[in-house]
């Protein structure tokens, strides 16, 4: 895997954007400016960005209820996302989808998803398309540890292994499904072990380390592209915020959360690594920070000013209209 300085700048920009985007949303919800169910990705940036840094625009990803990070990492435009969250006509999905359904087919982003586990077979199907139409594309399914308890996960992995599909299953193990600790509901120690039932390759990455994720994703994606079938890639991570905005977090230990947040922050880790390896300077990163902050502020301002969808939109897009 080769990461050029430009790749690293883009990766850092995406990670910083995800972090600031989620912090901004949290503020906006608390200020009563945004409605709906919002699940924030802060803390898990290295997973989405590490994996997507190894993908091409025509590759397809599927996402989850916690989807903003995957969108940004796959190149979905932030102003459209922000407008979507404000329920505006200029939103990525015309304001009809909202946080749990942001999608941008032009960017290979096959949707956040309100149904836990539902993106997994969709990615499997995208991989089937790639294989049968010989597009050379790869599909990636992002999903949580909780989703690996869904039948859709097991049925999809079995099919993908049988058909040797070009797909990478990326499980973001953040230790909780909503409020329930993973070890209460998953009897295996590592979710990666589940690949063995399907004679599938698996790999475990440090989901707080962009470089480790990118390295392991790169191998899995290359194998998929080379016709060597699927991989289950488990990324060990942590969500820094609640399950949803407003979650009082009574169910997890403060010390545990503090430890991850203080000592394992993926953005700080990235900064340390690029400094150690002399890849990017702190000054360059601060410039990106400033750019991202301005871009985000502009996106919020534009979203607030943008027009609401017309009521006629209620009945459009239900079916494909044939002329």
């Amino acid at each position: 895997m080769e990461l050029k300085p430009d790749d690293l700048r883009l990766a850092y920009r995406h990670m910083r954007m995800i972090r600031l985007f989620e912090e901004k949303l949290s503020d906006l919800v608390q200020a009563g400016k945004l409605g709906g169910f919002l699940h924030l990705y802060a803390g898990e940036e290295a997973v989405a960005v590490g994996v997507c840094s190894q993908l091409q625009e025509t590759d397809v990803v599927t996402s989850t209820h916690r989807g903003h990070g995957h969108c940004i990492a796959k190149g979905v435009e932030v102003p459209g996302m922000m407008a979507e969250l404000f329920g505006r006509a200029t939103g990525t999905c015309k304001g009809k989808g909202g946080s749990m359904h942001i999608a941008d087919m032009d960017k290979g982003m096959l949707g956040a998803n309100g149904i836990v586990g539902a993106g997994i077979p969709l990615a499997t199907g995208a991989a089937l398309t790639a294989k049968l139409k010989r597009t050379g594309n790869v599909a990636v399914a992002f999903f949580g540890d909780g989703a690996s308890n869904q039948g859709q996960f097991h049925e999809s992995l079995n099919m993908a292994a049988n058909w040797q599909l070009p797909v990478v299953y990326v499980v973001e193990n953040n230790g909780f499904g909503e409020f329930t600790p993973t070890e209460f509901v998953v009897p295996v120690r590592d979710i990666a072990e589940r690949a063995r039932s399907y004679a599938m390759r698996s790999e475990i990455a440090d989901g707080m380390d962009f470089f480790d994720v990118a390295e392991k994703a790169s191998k899995a994606i290359a194998a998929a592209r080379a016709g060597e079938g699927p991989t289950l890639l488990e990324c060990k991570t942590y969500r820094f915020m609640g399950h949803f905005v407003g979650d009082p977090l009574p169910y997890r230990h403060k010390e545990e959360a503090e430890d991850w947040i203080q000592n394992r922050d993926p953005l700080q880790g990235f900064e340390r690594t690029v400094a150690e390896r002399g890849l990017l300077s702190a000054g360059e990163l601060r410039v990106i920070d400033g750019d991202v902050e301005r871009e985000l502020a502009a996106a919020v301002a534009a979203a607030e000013e943008a027009p609401l969808p017309s009521i006629d939109e209620l009945l459009t897009d239900v079916y494909v209209e044939t002329a």
Binding site: G35, G36, E84, G87, R88, G91, C93, G95, K96, G97, G98, S99, H101, L308, P309, I311, E313, L314, L315, V318
Partner: peptide, 16 residues
């Protein structure tokens, strides 16, 4: 409700 999925935007949901 009309014969369509439930929209996200508040104006549309209210109309739904």
């Amino acid at each position: 409700a009309p014969h369509c999925p439930v929209p996200f935007a508040k104006v549309l949901e209210d109309a739904y």
